[in-house]
Amino acid sequence: MSDPARSPSADAVLEVRGLEKHFGGLYALSGLDMEVRRGEIVSVIGPNGAGKSTLFNVITGIYEPDAGDIRYQGSTIVGLRPHQVVKLGIARTFQSVRLFANMTILENAMVGQHCRSKGGVFGSIVRTPGVRAEEDRIRQRAEEALSFFGKRLSGYRLEQPAFSLSYANRRRLEMARAMATDPQVLLLDEPTAGMNPRETLELRDHIVRMRDELGLTVVVIEHDMRVVKGVSDRVIACDYGQKIAEGTYEEVANDERVIEAYLGTKAAG
């Protein structure tokens, strides 16, 4: 197989070119390039502060980049607001779980369908047949997304407030909420952080299922190398806001610069 990083491919669904983001004197991203192809699972790894989460924040429109371009399905998405990016089909989860704690589990997932529905003020007050049907569809789609995780988020739990969930279930709900936006690309920011080994392995299978069953393209920031190894078609390693290695898990894991980034200069030399 040729080096995937250097062959510009027509089926790239997400393309990042020369991306820069500074916070004062800190260069969180300094000229990052990457691309994600349709139906791929890409892991982004790197030590703390390498700019991984900033990358997600810039892609989803939470931060505006200082330079560089982000193209989604061929057209640029730089300058769009986060809700516009979601509507185009890029959904995400957060490193620190951010649910709507006082809304029920079902309501949380239903919020995900917001960008796929359009009931307005008049329709909501009069409850026109169109709005009723739409509300049913929102609910059905939300339940579908929740049932991806089996019984964990369905049944009697639907009507419970999100704050009553265990930590692992909160992470699952966040993923279900993102999946309820009917995305093409799903960005997962450290989905296994805080999970125990059994839950971590289970989630590894879930990530693979997201691609195989739902046809999603997944970009995942992950520290747990078992997960990275288990799910990735491709691994991208970052440090100091730049890509330092790319390839299969084995290639990246044995790359000198990656080892250096993780362990320091001496270990590499």
Partner: peptide, 16 residues
């Protein structure tokens, strides 16, 4: 409600 709970997350979940 979502906006009241967490404005930035609501935005990131598709609410203008």
């Amino acid at each position: 409600t979502a906006m009241r709970e967490d404005e930035q997350t609501a935005d990131a979940m598709g609410i203008s």
